[in-house]
Amino acid sequence: MTQVSVVFPAPVMPGLRNLLSRYAESTMWLARYMERIENLARLIEVTSTSVSATNMDAGWDSVIRINADEGLFFQRHGSASERSVVAFYITDSDNPDSIVSMARYARENARVLRPLISTEMWMHLNVFTRWVMELGPDDVGAGYLSTLCTRLKQDCQTHFGITEGTLYRDQAWLFYILGKNLERADQITRLIDIKYHTLLPSGVGVGSDIDMSQWTSVLRSAAAYHAFRRVLPEGMTPANIVGFLLKNDGFPRSLSTSLRSVYSVLGSLAGEYRLRHCAPIIERLEELRVTLVEQTVEDIIMRGLHEYMDWIQRELRQIQNEIAHAFWPPAIAVQPVGPGRMEQVQD
């Protein structure tokens, strides 16, 4: 049959150059939620394999601490067992930090963005969210947890792949990259902050198998195990691990790589798109990067790793707030979909 369209004069696409503030905000949060889901799924999976080799329930509390959910969690559960933590973080829709909640927020942000994103992006998110929402207690049992987490991670990675392959490269893309990398930076510093102590000798069994397995599990939680092996085949020490996760420029999830992406995106927004208000944000970011470059990991640890991670997280929140202020200022602030932990007021 004939499906010949009438040819019209070149369409005017003015909308593409001036991204609606509301779209920018939703794009950023879509990326953040999907990144957060992937990180959480990986953390749960690694925790489940590493604790099962040692003590049944030890280790699950660190998942809660990484997410700073002690308050809400212990209101609802007596102790941090595998069962309670997994339920809390995967299927509990009353927990805003659970995967089911975040998948819903991601989809609602995508719903806002439907005029902008590709049909493939929307379709995948829609199917993914429906699947997550239907997960029941049987799907998250010990025997299935690893399979489930693998699928969750894969769906996030599919999302990132579809986005990379189909999202038009304009400001929306830049805000997406911004959200993804701010989230990664936040996640890696949380992970280091909470997990560092497990790397340290605990008096007994220095250099024993248990230490090694703790170290690998920290690397695996950041999807860094093989990359680390390639770069430092012999050098598995706590300082090297922390140094790799913070400062390695080749590792895609290291703090320095994430900050470099944020920096380059802000540069494009200020340069190619001539957006105002980028300068103070870039300045703050430069400061952050300098502290990372100028200190060795030994310096950082000596001066206090926890304090440094804490400071970086505060700076990241400040950057997020300044971005919000610059591109979706309070006068027009729209309620982003979902009460995630880093929205609007960050502390």
Binding site: N18, L19, L20, S21, R22, A24, Q171, F175, L269, Y273, R274, L275, R276, F327, W328, I332
Partner: peptide, 9 residues
């Protein structure tokens, strides 16, 4: 005007 990341358009 519409509110965009580049200001009102």
């Amino acid at each position: 005007y519409m509110r965009t990341v580049a200001g009102p358009r």
